[in-house]
Computed example of a mutant assay.
Amino acid sequence: MSNVQNVVFDRAAGYYDQTRALPPHEASQLTDALWEALGAAPASHVLEIGVGTGRIAGPLAQRGLSMMGIDLSGSMLAVLHEKFPSLPVALADMTRLPFAAAAFDGVIAFHVFHLVSGWRDALAEAVRVLRPGGKFIYSIHGRDPNSVNSQLRTQWRRLLADQGIKAEPPGIRDDAQVDQVLRQLGCRDHQQREVIRSREPVTARFVLDAMEKRIWSDTWLVPDDVFAQTMGVLRAWASERFDLDQVDQDEYHVGFHVYTV
């Protein structure tokens, strides 16, 4: 059983953008949608918690929005500074934001609450620093559970469970629980928006190779010996069930929830 409190992305800083970035036209669609959802104007002041390398905040800042970012990873923030040197950032914990109450017109959180054990505190802090009428936006991500990618990762977790290990980050993935906490904090006017629904070609061999390189954060949570053993079993299992080089169209979707404070 993992006792990880938070997942920090220092080890991923060098390859994060290459493995997490959306295609340029989809990234532009997402920026457009966020701008619209924020009701953005250059005078608006928006914070991104878990800003990472700036793939969300950077394009918004380039549009003229006054952005601020915080993250626990100094290495990720260093990459952000190389890409967006004028975007102000702070090395800080989203569960204890170093800002006054009602300091921002918007707060954005993308693909981060599953990494934080104190996600309830993070939500409370996000609401605290928002001005009345401000927008809180957090992301939606999903993949086809029947894709080869999902099948391989599900089977790997079963192998780990057989050894009493749970390779799950310490935070929350349940949107209903997030919604409940936000409403208790006084948020209202919930809207949900899907921005992107697309497919990407992938093979079982590619997924296995990526897992063995420990690109994804859930693979960091497993002891090295157990990781090597379970990946060997998984590759043998996959070789019996899939043509490892057959191209599968992996469907994914990206969007976000919007709440008004």
Results as ranks from 00 to 15, higher is better:
S2I: 11
N3I: 07
V4I: 15
Q5Y: 07
V8I: 15
A12Q: 15
Y15Q: 09
Y15E: 11
Y16I: 09
Q18M: 11
L22W: 12
L22I: 08
P23H: 06
P24E: 13
A27P: 07
S28W: 14
L30D: 04
L34K: 02
A37G: 02
L38M: 04
G39F: 00
A40H: 02
A40I: 05
L47T: 01
E48V: 00
I49L: 10
G52V: 06
G52S: 09
T53W: 08
T53C: 03
G54D: 01
R55Q: 15
A57D: 06
A57K: 06
G58H: 11
A61D: 07
A61Y: 12
G69N: 04
L72P: 04
G74Q: 12
M76Y: 11
A78V: 09
A78M: 11
V79Y: 12
E82F: 02
E82M: 10
E82K: 14
L91V: 08
D93Q: 03
D93R: 07
M94T: 01
R96W: 04
P98L: 07
P98C: 08
A100P: 14
A103S: 15
F104W: 01
I108W: 07
I108Q: 05
A109F: 05
L115C: 11
V116M: 09
W119N: 03
W119G: 02
W119Y: 10
A122C: 00
L123Q: 01
A124S: 14
E125P: 00
E125M: 00
A126Y: 00
R128H: 02
V129Y: 00
G134W: 01
K135C: 08
F136L: 15
Y138L: 05
S139G: 11
S139P: 01
I140M: 03
I140L: 12
H141S: 08
G142M: 01
R143H: 12
R143N: 09
S147W: 06
R153H: 14
W156Q: 11
R157F: 04
L159S: 04
L160E: 00
Q163L: 14
G164I: 10
E168C: 04
P169G: 07
D174P: 04
A176H: 09
Q177L: 13
Q177D: 07
Q180Y: 06
Q180S: 09
Q184P: 03
Q184S: 11
L185Q: 03
R188W: 03
D189F: 05
H190M: 09
Q191T: 08
R197M: 08
S198N: 15
R199H: 12
R199K: 14
T203S: 14
T203H: 05
F206I: 09
D209A: 13
A210L: 12
M211V: 06
M211C: 12
E212T: 07
K213D: 13
R214P: 01
W216F: 15
W216N: 07
S217G: 11
T219L: 10
T219E: 09
T219Y: 08
W220Y: 13
L221E: 06
P223G: 03
V226P: 02
M231H: 13
V233M: 10
L234V: 12
L234K: 12
W237Q: 13
R241G: 13
D245P: 01
D245E: 13
Q249G: 05
Q249D: 14
D250H: 15
V258Y: 03
V261N: 11
V261Q: 12
